[in-house]
Design a protein around this nucleic acid. Sequence first.
DNA 1: GATTTAACTGAACACACGTTCAAATCAAAG
DNA 2: CTTTGATTTGAACGTGTGTTCAGTTAAATC
Lengths: 195, 195
Amino acid sequence: MARTQGSHSDITGPRVREAALALFARHGFAAVSMRQIASAVGVQAGALYNYTPDKQTLLYDLMRTHMEDLLAAWDSQTPTGGALGALETFTRFHIRFNTRRADAVFVSYMELRNLSPENFEVIEGLRRDYETRLETILRQGAREGVFAVSEPRIASMAVIAMLTGVNTWFREQGRLSLAEVEAIYWEMVRKSVAA
Amino acid sequence: MARTQGSHSDITGPRVREAALALFARHGFAAVSMRQIASAVGVQAGALYNYTPDKQTLLYDLMRTHMEDLLAAWDSQTPTGGALGALETFTRFHIRFNTRRADAVFVSYMELRNLSPENFEVIEGLRRDYETRLETILRQGAREGVFAVSEPRIASMAVIAMLTGVNTWFREQGRLSLAEVEAIYWEMVRKSVAA
DNA sequence: GATTTAACTGAACACACGTTCAAATCAAAG
DNA sequence: CTTTGATTTGAACGTGTGTTCAGTTAAATC
């Protein structure tokens, strides 16, 4: 069992996923060839098949990892201040997490149609899980009387769509800092569901 | 000059665009072949080149037509009731227009990266024009004191992102009617920018 | 009914695709 | 220093790609 430690696969594996994510985000899954990914990593196309059974699974793994990271990151948050505090925590968390992983967010949203039906179901389930986290906050706030939302499920999708929209224009070096963007969106979110 | 009236191109031309739009929306521009489009229309691939110089221009024309239709449709609206009335008109208009043209909206958003730089600039300019329509309403409302928006440009993108998000879940035969959806979103939009 | 010509076919072009696999490579273990 | 086997190469497989174009078809005009 030679080369179990420090073997190239420890390096090449992550690099394949990084290169694939960047290329899929820029050009789209269907427009990127295995040879392009291999070239970005610095290997021949055949070598990629040590790291993924096929192109479709490579995409699926990237999307699943992203969604699981998102859920795990949110679940490690510890909001305080009741439903209102939880909503603020969620708003700021979502903007911060998603702007830092723009490629993964983009791919996970745009390439759903390139997944097999079974893989699609898994990713869609994870997305629903995330939406439910926000829905739960809105539902609780509505019960407590601090929010006025007649349709918590739809409100949660509306808020998430608004927040994810930041990714289409936000640039690290832009006029507004991330903190300022968070503040602007938090004000809009807060008011949009206010009682 | 025979066959100038009732010629097949009057029929085939629109059908090519319809088929391309539906296929691009479902599978993505890069994943759809000219032969697939031709097959959906009922002709051979070569015949498509009577209607478009190439595949890329076909996409561009679909996107440009959609954006121009959107702008023209909005510009034909006659909102009343000041900035608040205009915002309600915009909200309801955007939801109604976009849910009726889900394929075109989807393609116009997802396939921007498949446009040549020059074509991209045109489409992006039209999108900015549309955003400016809403921004103008928000700016006016802020000046009049009926809205509280510190960043009208960003607020307009936030609102549009939220409203366009309806397309990801709304189904004609679903639990909620379009009128109900409009009402839910109008309440959220109104409150989100309320003074 | 002959003429005109828009519309379309069908084959071909050169190239790129995802994937496979025997052979070569080379770092670590003995 | 030899052995081992994980890793990668490089060529090949069959299939599909966007696009071109000489030739065929058929509808409208005279």
